[in-house]
Amino acid sequence: MSTHIDSTHFTDGTEVEISSNDNGFRGAWYAGTVIKPKNTNKNNKHLIIVEYKTLMADESGTKPLRETLDVVQLRPVPPREKRDREFKFSEEVDAYYSDGWWEGVVTGVLPGDRYSVFFRATREQLEFGQSELRVHREWVYGKWVPPLEQEEEPSNCMESKVGNNEKIQKGASVEVCSDEDGFQGAWFAATVIEELSFGKFKIEYKSLRNDDDTAFMTEEVDTAHIRPCPPNETVAHFRLYEEVDALHNDGWWVGVISKVLSKQRYEVFFRATDEEIVFKQSDLRRHLEWINGKWVSSESVCNSMNRKTK
């Protein structure tokens, strides 16, 4: 996530992390360097030439790959971790794998400072050493959330509307993400039918039907695929490059406002599918991340920043 992106962050020589839209690379962030910002193109996009540090353009691995990308695919380099940091079960992390950082969830704390990490995007569970993991952070309005110095304390950039997974019980309204092809990256409204053992839940979707269209679809999901429903909010308008969730094909998909058409209509860019779609105001909501049992709110980040500058 890179909410409210300012292209002035990325001058010549700036070290950055880059997200890719190519198949097999979506969901990862790669280290790179800004070679040259370009002028805004005819579609009002800010384009930047970058050079990757770990991805090569040739088979011999001697020529770093260069690409011209939209600024929405860039973010600054996250802060370094504290040494010997221990990670906890169900904590969201980034794991260094296949030359990039991939978002995952800790599903097992193993002997010898080793951890099992589950990746929603690929449905894989792999083992990593402590040095191969970092805290999952989001770049929100020019600040990292959570910031390095506050990662052990509750941050006023986070709004705790619902507690941890113990609050998710029978009858609760939740959102569920899917790993099936064509549905990855979307969240779907559901109701918890039953709380099962080993951190699993039986849920019934509110919008997805079974194959013969006779009833709503039911499924068993684990804690890595379920979260409370985000708080209901009224947003007067969305801003250019603001990250949003868009209601599309019965689910909420994360995207970025790429063009403000009017106060009630917006063009939204989706990294996962590399497409742009026009939405009404009523089909969009402010994007929130559920991290370590709390909602990460862009607005609360801004309020915190304002308080610090007064």
Score class of each variant (00 low, 15 high):
A272H: 07
H287W: 11
Q184K: 14
D250R: 02
E180P: 02
G24I: 03
R239N: 12
W252S: 06
V77R: 06
I5G: 05
E138W: 04
W295V: 01
K308V: 11
D84L: 11
F10E: 08
V268N: 04
H225Y: 04
E243D: 04
N41I: 00
S116E: 14
G199H: 05
T214N: 01
K202E: 12
A28G: 01
T11N: 10
V145M: 05
S160Q: 13
K82D: 12
G27C: 02
E233N: 11
T309W: 10
D179Y: 08
E153Y: 13
T62S: 14
F89G: 05
Y205V: 01
R265S: 10
Y96Q: 11
N165G: 08
P37S: 05
T223P: 00
K200M: 13
I193M: 14
R114T: 09
C302P: 02
Q125A: 04
L288Y: 05
G185R: 00
V278N: 03
A215T: 05
V117T: 03
P78R: 09
L247D: 13
K42S: 09
A57C: 02
T11Q: 15
D70Y: 02
H136R: 12
M305H: 06
P231H: 05
V50H: 04
V145T: 04
R307P: 02
R286G: 07
K53A: 08
S258F: 00
T54R: 14
D113Q: 12
E219S: 06
D250Q: 07
V174H: 00
V72L: 08
K161E: 06
Y96N: 08
A224I: 13
N43A: 09
V93P: 01
E132Y: 07
D84K: 12
V192S: 12
W101A: 05
S60F: 08
V254H: 11
E153V: 14
A224M: 07
E81N: 14
G182D: 08
R83A: 14
S304K: 07
W29A: 04
H287G: 01
N306L: 10
L110F: 06
R285Q: 09
L55I: 15
F119N: 02
V254K: 15
P230C: 09
E267P: 10
E267V: 11
E204N: 11
E151M: 12
V174T: 02
E153H: 13
L240I: 11
P228Y: 09
L208Y: 09
G13F: 05
E220R: 13
V174N: 02
H248S: 03
K202R: 15
T309F: 04
V50K: 07
F188E: 06
R209A: 06
I49G: 01
Y115L: 06
N44F: 05
V221I: 15
G251I: 03
I203E: 07
P231Q: 04
V235R: 10
V109K: 11
L208W: 12
P111S: 08
R66N: 02
F119G: 04
H136K: 15
W139M: 01
V254Y: 05
Y30W: 11
G32P: 01
K53W: 08
F269S: 13
E92L: 01
D58Q: 03
G171M: 01
V192F: 11
W252Y: 15
V296N: 03
Y52L: 00
L284G: 00
Y96I: 09
V106A: 00
I5R: 13
E103W: 07
K202M: 10
S173Y: 13
E242F: 12
D274Q: 14
V109Q: 06
G182S: 13
D6T: 07
E204V: 06
P146M: 00
H237Q: 10
